[in-house]
Amino acid sequence: MTKCPTCGAASPAANQTPQNSEAEIVLRIPERHFPLMRKTFREMEMKLGMYGLGELANTLKPYGAFFNKDFDKLRYFDDGALGMVMHGVTAGYPAAVRITEEDDKRFASPERGERVAVHVDFTFPDGRVKPMAVAEHATPEAAAWFTDYIADLCARLSPAEQNAVHHDTQESEALNGK
């Protein structure tokens, strides 16, 4: 057995695991990955619950809670599509929010109030515009908030002008849906 040079306490034998020595992982997740993490935690909670593993599902809740900022507005938007929007913005593709009437009128009712569809249109270097549907039934208030959110996001996360658009084949194919 060896002793700690600072306090003189005996350290455990090399082949013996000390008690209360659980490992811990600390993650720093960039804002552009928040939708992906939110989707991951929500889907895992749901799957674990469906498999009858409610205790494990509940264990995930505190970790997923970190990604619930602005949930009252973001709940109308698809996290997978938002993840792709983040990818497009950080890759340097100019993005513009387009709000249209709700595509499916079957869901319209006076109790629900007015709903709109929200798309993000990316402009490619050759001038083509690729639309991405991010919400089908958002409230007009959530859509207006989202417009400001994307404008702020583009201002903060778009690469510098000289690096504005990456011509990486994988990024272009991902945004083109290939």
Rank of each mutant, 00 (worst) to 15 (best):
M1C: 08
M1H: 08
K3C: 11
C4K: 00
P5C: 05
P5M: 09
G8F: 09
A10Q: 09
S11H: 04
P12M: 02
A13V: 03
Q16M: 06
P18N: 10
E22D: 11
A23K: 14
A23N: 09
I25V: 15
I25P: 05
R28A: 07
R28N: 07
P30L: 04
E31K: 08
H33L: 11
H33P: 05
P35L: 10
P35V: 02
L36A: 14
M37N: 04
R38T: 05
R38C: 05
T40A: 10
T40Y: 04
T40I: 09
R42T: 09
E45L: 00
G49Y: 07
G49H: 15
M50V: 06
Y51I: 00
L53C: 14
A57Y: 11
A57I: 15
N58M: 00
K61A: 12
K61S: 05
P62F: 04
Y63K: 00
G64V: 00
A65S: 10
A65R: 01
F67D: 03
F67P: 06
N68A: 10
D70P: 07
D70R: 11
D70E: 11
L74Y: 03
R75H: 10
R75K: 15
Y76D: 11
Y76N: 10
F77S: 09
L82D: 06
G83M: 12
M84I: 12
V85D: 02
H87S: 13
G88N: 13
A96Q: 14
V97H: 03
R98N: 00
I99A: 08
I99F: 10
T100E: 06
E101L: 06
E101S: 12
E101K: 15
E102L: 15
E102M: 12
D103H: 14
D104W: 10
A108S: 13
S109M: 09
E111K: 15
R115W: 03
V116M: 07
V118E: 03
V120T: 01
V120Q: 03
V120S: 01
F122D: 05
F122K: 13
F124A: 05
F124N: 01
D126C: 13
R128E: 01
K130T: 08
P131S: 04
P131M: 03
A133W: 01
V134R: 02
A138R: 05
P140D: 14
A143K: 02
A144V: 11
A144N: 15
A144W: 06
F146K: 09
D148T: 13
D148Y: 01
Y149M: 00
I150D: 13
C154N: 12
R156E: 02
L157E: 14
L157Y: 05
P159H: 01
A164N: 14
A164C: 06
H167W: 13
D168V: 07
G177H: 05
